[in-house]
Amino acid sequence: MAKVGNTSEVSGKVAANSPPRAPRSKQSRIDSELKKLRELTKDAIPDEKRKAIMPLLPNLAFMKVKLDDARADLLYEDIFTEYDNGGGQSGLREHPGFSAYNKLFTTFSRSVKQLADMMPNGTAAADALIDFINETRC
Rank of each mutant, 00 (worst) to 15 (best):
T7S: 12
E9V: 12
L57W: 02
T136D: 05
D43W: 04
V10P: 01
S90I: 06
K35W: 08
S111Q: 07
K13N: 12
Q89E: 12
S99Y: 09
M118V: 07
I79G: 05
F105C: 00
G86N: 03
K66Y: 13
A44P: 01
E9D: 13
K3I: 08
P120I: 01
K26N: 14
N6P: 06
G87C: 04
R24W: 09
A70I: 10
S109D: 12
R110P: 03
K26V: 15
A44I: 00
N59I: 15
K42A: 15
I133W: 13
T123E: 01
F105I: 03
R29N: 13
N6C: 08
D117S: 05
G5M: 13
G87E: 12
F80N: 05
K3F: 14
S8I: 11
L34I: 09
L115A: 00
M1P: 05
G122S: 02
I53W: 04
T41D: 04
L74D: 08
D43R: 03
E9N: 14
H95D: 02
R137C: 10
A61C: 08
E48C: 12
L104E: 09
G88T: 07
L75S: 15
C138W: 06
I30A: 05
K35G: 10
D68L: 14
D117H: 02
R93K: 14
S32V: 05
L75W: 02
A44Q: 04
M63V: 01
P58Q: 04
G87M: 09
A126I: 03
I53D: 06
K66E: 15
Q27M: 14
A72F: 02
L129W: 00
V112C: 08
A44H: 04
M118G: 01
M118W: 00
Y101E: 05
D31V: 14
S18H: 11
M1F: 13
D31Q: 13
S18T: 12
Q89H: 14
A125K: 01
T41E: 05
L34D: 08
I45D: 03
A22F: 05
M63Y: 06
K103N: 07
P120H: 00
I30T: 11
E77H: 04
I130G: 04
T136I: 12
L92I: 06
P19T: 12
R71G: 11
K26Y: 14
D31W: 09
A116R: 03
I79W: 00
A128V: 03
K26W: 07
N6Y: 11
R24Y: 05
G122Y: 04
R38P: 06
R71K: 13
R24T: 13
K13R: 13
L40P: 02
N102D: 13
G91S: 00
S32E: 15
Y101D: 02
V112E: 03
N85C: 04
L56K: 09
T106W: 06
M54P: 01
D43T: 15
M54H: 04
R24A: 15
M118D: 04
L40R: 00
A70F: 08
I53F: 07
L92Q: 10
K13Q: 11
L92D: 03
L74A: 03
K103R: 15
S99L: 12
G87W: 12
Y76D: 15
D117M: 11
D117R: 03
F98W: 07
P23C: 03
M63T: 02
G122W: 02
K113T: 07
G87A: 12
S25K: 07
S99M: 10
L57Y: 01
K64Q: 14
L92T: 02
D73P: 01
V14E: 07
V14G: 09
